[in-house]
Design a protein around this nucleic acid. Sequence first.
DNA 1: CCATAATATGAGCGATCACTCACTTTTTGG
DNA 2: CCAAAAAGTGAGTGATCGCTCATATTATGG
Lengths: 208, 208
Amino acid sequence: MVRKPVIKPRKTASQERSRATVDALVEATARILIKDGFDKASTNRVAEVAGVSIGSLYQYFPSKEALVVSVAERHQQEITQTVRGEVAEIMAQPVERAMRSLVAVAVKAHRVDPKLHRVLAEQIPRVGKLEKLEAFNPENYTLFRTYLESHRDELRVEDLELASFVCVTSIEALTHNAVLHQPKMLSDAAIETLIDEGARLVTGYLKR
Amino acid sequence: MVRKPVIKPRKTASQERSRATVDALVEATARILIKDGFDKASTNRVAEVAGVSIGSLYQYFPSKEALVVSVAERHQQEITQTVRGEVAEIMAQPVERAMRSLVAVAVKAHRVDPKLHRVLAEQIPRVGKLEKLEAFNPENYTLFRTYLESHRDELRVEDLELASFVCVTSIEALTHNAVLHQPKMLSDAAIETLIDEGARLVTGYLKR
DNA sequence: CCATAATATGAGCGATCACTCACTTTTTGG
DNA sequence: CCAAAAAGTGAGTGATCGCTCATATTATGG
């Protein structure tokens, strides 16, 4: 009659009721992060806002960190969905057009959920398991490098790795700062101008 | 015989002994921030590492935030001292040379105390009084804009404010990422290459 | 229908935190 | 030398935090 611990699962949610619970917890975490920041997102409060007991929270998330990671993954997935397709198109375009599209896509990505993006990028202490939560997605880097390789003949740059670093870092910083820190950049017209400028910046640097 | 509260001052340290206490506290805070990060820098621990009682800490710093602000200010001052003079020189140089010098100076600034710089830039929750602790110094922005104005005839860009935003953001991100996140960029040779590339990036964007 | 598994509950534990205050020790200046 | 000001002390407070667990409720499948 030995009872194996009931607290074991802490992972899978098989029934619909529990899937709803998990969703509510992730959603509540995101909402609190946006409204009050990381420090105020205590597990007790997350559970309360989600309308769920603190015990249930720990059935599915072994720690506060796991909760934040889930929010980040959901956000990343939303971005990927929004941007999907455009990337494939871009890979075939010539440098000038490709760079403009790329900057435009970067802006689009930052506009999916700007406030959440900002919190995830700037407020989450990158300690412990949260360390891998890179503000900058290494996938972007690899993708860019691949583009440069297949368009080598149009380029003046020789070290493609270095060039990728320069371009990806610049585009990311530019779009991030513009969308999340520059109140002047809110209008569509201003954003369009920014896209032009960002594209010109990296095109001039890359093109033969 | 009414005693006015002794806890009032909380600010000025007139004797040498107390100045040493304040120094020890700021130094201890910086050391803990670097070694263990913001979360582990509890006021009790700062006092302990500084070899000072927690009571003394609160004589001079009304809060943990004040302590961190002090560390940030001291760091900023060290950077300013290191970079002093070079800026004045740069303002007179033509665009191509000026941009190279500027990127070099930015690298130098990030190398003053890289680990501390990284913690201050990435780990401090920008809430409450810490919000003004900008990762990016608006002074740099103004300085850059002033340079562009006095060299307008050499430039193809029209909107100097936008151009400043583009260049300052890019240079900052480039040097920050290179010095603090790219292990490959540790050697002086690699840094020299980075400076060349960064300079070329913004020069091509700016120059007529 | 009912045994079992899945899911949900929330009081409360131990740890830690930022911070206070009544008090002692040291320094200063006349 | 001494009174008063400056500096220093640390046990303790109250709040909050992440998290556990014994127990209750609900769903599933034979």
